[in-house]
């Protein structure tokens, strides 16, 4: 449904060269991206600032034309067939509001119904769902300029869905939101994705969004895809392992080896040791350890996706 082949976007930027002169330099924001997204998928795009996430989204939504390569959404070429595409997609750009600043939230929805020419009954039905699921009723009559960021974002998501798009693009939907609003947005998107009726493509900096929502994770760095797959696949590929942290009454004897593990860290003069579980289960490791040492406390730590991604960025 969404296809990108060898997609590129170059920007020419002027950089100061000497006192008055400025030099033109070509920067590839997106540097040969090929991806296919099938109906019903939930895909999360992550990457550091300037990696090309938003630029890719803008090429998919008809805002920017690619420098080269192919892109098609529902078989439409986004920029030339922009207005036809617009009826089939919903777009939330976290940083840019599509609501009417000075009007009550309800009015924006009414105006968008005309802009998208949605039959009243359909509009009503979708708005009712959103009101229930996103708890809009408390601020439906408040002017948008007086809404909190979390309330506004819930309004933006509703606005993007009222015309019944088959795919929803979200650029940083949770940026700057408090914990409660983040939860509200995430559980709404999770529920929306679970229906399978709407394909969801989102960009984020917050890996919790991905862990909660997306089966598929696309990591992009310097305009290139460096990973495309599940979170588990990412861990497997980058060898991130669970680890066992133990607090000991006395340090382990020198030269001690716990089979199937390696020592990942020693703290507090040897009273706290972290083992990476390379080729063994946590249970076997604990059993091997209590046989030789007096263990005061222990915990098993899941691999941290932030670490994996940070390593990925550094490699790139």
């Amino acid at each position: 449904m969404i296809r990108m082949r060898d997609l590129r976007k170059d920007f020419s930027v002027r950089v100061p060269a000497g006192r008055l002169r400025r030099e033109k330099r070509l920067v590839s924001a997106v540097d040969g991206v090929s991806l296919t997204i099938e109906p019903g998928e939930m895909v999360g795009y992550i990457g550091p600032n300037g990696a090309g996430k938003s630029t890719t989204l803008k090429m998919l939504t008809g805002v920017l034309s690619p420098t080269s390569g192919e892109v098609s959404v529902f078989g439409l070429t986004p920029v030339p067939q922009r207005t036809r595409l617009a009826l089939r997609i919903g777009v939330v750009f976290g940083q840019r509001s599509q609501l009417w600043w000075d009007l009550p939230l309800r009015e924006s929805f009414r105006l968008l119904r005309h802009v998208y020419q949605v039959p009243p009954a359909e509009h009503e039905q979708r708005l009712r769902r959103c009101r229930e699921m996103l708890d809009l009723d408390a601020f439906l009559d408040t002017p948008v300029r007086q809404l909190s960021l979390g309330q506004r974002m819930r309004g933006e998501i509703t606005a993007a869905l009222l015309h019944g798009p088959k795919v929803l693009f979200l650029d940083e939907p949770t940026i700057g939101l408090d914990v409660v609003s983040k939860q509200a947005v995430r559980s709404f998107l999770a529920e929306l994705g679970a229906t399978g009726a709407v394909t969801v493509v989102l960009t984020t900096h917050d890996l919790a969004d991905i862990e909660r929502l997306c089966d598929r994770l696309v990591v992009i760095d310097h305009g290139r895809v460096v990973h495309d797959g599940t979170i588990e696949a990412l861990h497997a590929r980058y060898g991130s392992r669970r680890s066992l942290v133990v607090d000991l009454d006395s340090p382990l004897p020198a030269g001690f080896v716990l089979p199937g593990t390696s020592v990942a860290g020693v703290e507090a003069d040897g009273h706290r040791v972290t083992f990476a579980l390379d080729e063994t289960s946590a249970a076997a490791a604990v059993a091997g350890l209590v046989a030789v040492a007096s263990v005061r406390d222990l915990s098993v730590v899941e691999p941290d996706i932030e670490d994996v991604v940070a390593r990925l960025y550094r490699a790139g």
Binding site: T83, R84, L87, R88, H114, V115, Q117, V118, E122, Q125, R126, R129, L161, H163, G164, P165, K166, E191, L192, T195, G196, A197, V198
Partner: peptide
């Protein structure tokens, strides 16, 4: 819920609709 979201995808707006918009 699925039916709520999956709307008709109309071929495009009418001229009268655009004027109303």
């Amino acid at each position: 819920t699925g039916e709520t979201w999956a709307g008709e995808t109309w071929a495009g707006g009418t001229r009268a609709g655009a004027i109303r918009a």
